[in-house]
Amino acid sequence: MDVFMKGLSKAKEGVVAAAEKTKQGVAEAAGKTKEGVLYVGSKTKEGVVHGVATVAEKTKEQVTNVGGAVVTGVTAVAQKTVEGAGSIAAATGFVKKDQLGKNEEGAPQEGILEDMPVDPDNEAYEMPSEEGYQDYEPEA
């Protein structure tokens, strides 16, 4: 019985440690998101679009440190934060509304985080759909 109880105690310690790591990862992701939003706020009209992409990228980098179902929630929060940063930029006159959601080359930025393969159960990952990809044929 002692062996059984000791095993359960060790398992509990492992769960607590994993929860603490997840909590730490979420806190880091939130900190990076805040950094990115402050970065966007300090940019001029020309830099705002690039700044919004930076927020998304920093958040995406930190999301990889967070495991399990938390990833889905962090990704949703990050996307809403990026959308909010863009709205703030438009409201303050840093950028025109028609410039939001495009990178410096004018290509749409939507789907940055949505296409990231995420499995809350950590069982399997699927690649994003290939609808947006084109076949590449090298020139002879």
Rank of each mutant, 00 (worst) to 15 (best):
M1Q: 00
D2R: 02
D2E: 01
D2A: 09
D2I: 01
D2K: 03
V3T: 00
F4P: 00
F4Q: 00
F4S: 00
F4T: 00
M5K: 10
M5G: 01
M5D: 00
M5L: 00
K6Q: 02
K6R: 08
G7E: 11
G7R: 13
L8Y: 02
L8C: 01
K10N: 06
A11H: 01
A11Y: 06
K12I: 02
K12P: 00
K12C: 08
G14A: 15
V15M: 08
V15D: 00
V15I: 09
V15H: 00
V16G: 06
A17M: 12
A19I: 04
A19K: 03
A19L: 15
A19T: 02
A19P: 00
E20H: 10
E20S: 02
E20Q: 10
K21I: 08
K21T: 10
K23I: 01
K23F: 06
Q24I: 14
Q24K: 15
Q24C: 10
Q24G: 04
Q24Y: 15
Q24S: 07
Q24D: 11
G25W: 14
G25C: 12
V26I: 14
V26C: 13
V26Q: 00
V26G: 01
V26P: 00
A27H: 11
A27S: 06
E28S: 14
G31T: 07
G31P: 00
K32I: 08
T33V: 06
T33K: 00
K34C: 04
E35K: 07
E35M: 15
E35H: 11
E35I: 14
E35C: 15
G36A: 15
G36R: 14
G36Y: 08
G36S: 15
G36M: 15
V37I: 06
V37H: 00
V37P: 00
V37T: 01
L38C: 09
L38W: 07
L38D: 03
L38T: 10
L38Q: 05
Y39G: 04
Y39K: 12
Y39H: 03
Y39M: 04
Y39S: 10
V40L: 07
V40W: 04
V40I: 14
G41V: 11
G41W: 09
G41C: 14
K43C: 06
K43G: 01
K43V: 14
T44A: 08
K45N: 02
K45S: 04
K45C: 06
K45D: 00
K45F: 04
E46T: 15
E46G: 03
G47Y: 15
G47D: 08
G47E: 03
G47H: 12
G47I: 08
V48W: 15
V48N: 00
V49W: 08
V49T: 08
V49R: 14
H50F: 14
H50Y: 06
G51S: 02
G51E: 01
V52F: 09
A53I: 10
A53H: 11
T54N: 07
T54I: 13
V55D: 00
A56H: 15
A56W: 13
A56G: 03
A56C: 15
K58Y: 08
K58M: 12
T59K: 01
T59H: 02
K60S: 03
E61W: 11
E61Y: 03
Q62A: 06
Q62T: 08
Q62V: 02
Q62D: 01
V63T: 03
T64S: 12
T64M: 03
N65H: 05
N65V: 10
V66Q: 01
V66P: 01
V66A: 07
V66N: 01
V66G: 02
G67N: 06
G67L: 15
G68M: 15
G68C: 02
A69G: 07
A69E: 02
V70Q: 01
V70M: 14
V70A: 03
V71S: 04
V71T: 06
T72V: 09
T72L: 11
T72F: 02
G73E: 03
G73C: 11
V74K: 01
V74Q: 01
V74I: 03
A76D: 03
V77W: 14
V77N: 01
V77K: 02
A78D: 02
Q79L: 14
Q79T: 10
Q79W: 05
K80R: 07
K80G: 03
K80Q: 04
T81G: 05
T81Y: 14
V82P: 02
E83L: 04
E83M: 12
E83Y: 13
E83V: 13
G84H: 04
G84Y: 15
G84Q: 14
A85H: 03
A85Y: 13
G86W: 15
S87P: 08
S87I: 14
I88D: 01
I88G: 02
I88L: 05
A89W: 13
A89G: 07
A90E: 01
A90T: 12
A91R: 04
A91F: 13
T92E: 02
T92S: 07
T92N: 05
G93D: 05
G93Q: 04
G93N: 03
F94T: 05
F94I: 12
V95H: 04
V95T: 15
V95S: 11
K96N: 09
K96S: 11
K97W: 10
K97T: 05
K97A: 05
D98Q: 04
Q99D: 09
Q99K: 02
L100W: 01
L100D: 04
L100A: 10
L100N: 08
L100M: 09
G101D: 05
G101T: 07
G101Q: 11
K102W: 11
K102P: 08
K102Q: 01
K102R: 04
K102Y: 01
N103Y: 14
N103D: 12
E105C: 03
G106V: 05
G106Y: 06
G106M: 05
A107S: 09
A107W: 09
A107D: 09
Q109A: 02
Q109V: 07
E110M: 06
E110K: 07
I112D: 03
I112R: 12
I112A: 02
L113I: 15
L113A: 13
E114G: 09
E114N: 12
E114L: 07
E114T: 15
E114W: 12
D115R: 06
D115I: 08
M116T: 11
M116Y: 12
M116K: 03
P117S: 05
V118S: 07
V118E: 06
V118I: 07
P120R: 11
P120D: 06
D121H: 07
N122S: 06
E123W: 10
E123P: 10
A124H: 06
A124T: 02
A124P: 03
Y125N: 12
Y125A: 06
Y125R: 13
M127F: 05
P128V: 03
P128F: 02
P128C: 05
P128E: 08
S129V: 11
E130R: 10
E130F: 05
E130A: 04
E131G: 02
G132C: 10
G132P: 04
G132H: 10
Y133M: 08
Y133E: 11
Q134T: 02
Q134N: 15
Q134E: 10
Q134W: 05
D135S: 03
D135P: 02
D135C: 04
Y136A: 05
Y136P: 03
Y136W: 06
E137R: 14
E137S: 09
E137K: 03
E137D: 04
E137N: 06
E137M: 05
E137W: 04
P138T: 08
P138I: 09
P138C: 13
E139R: 10
E139T: 03
A140K: 15
A140N: 08
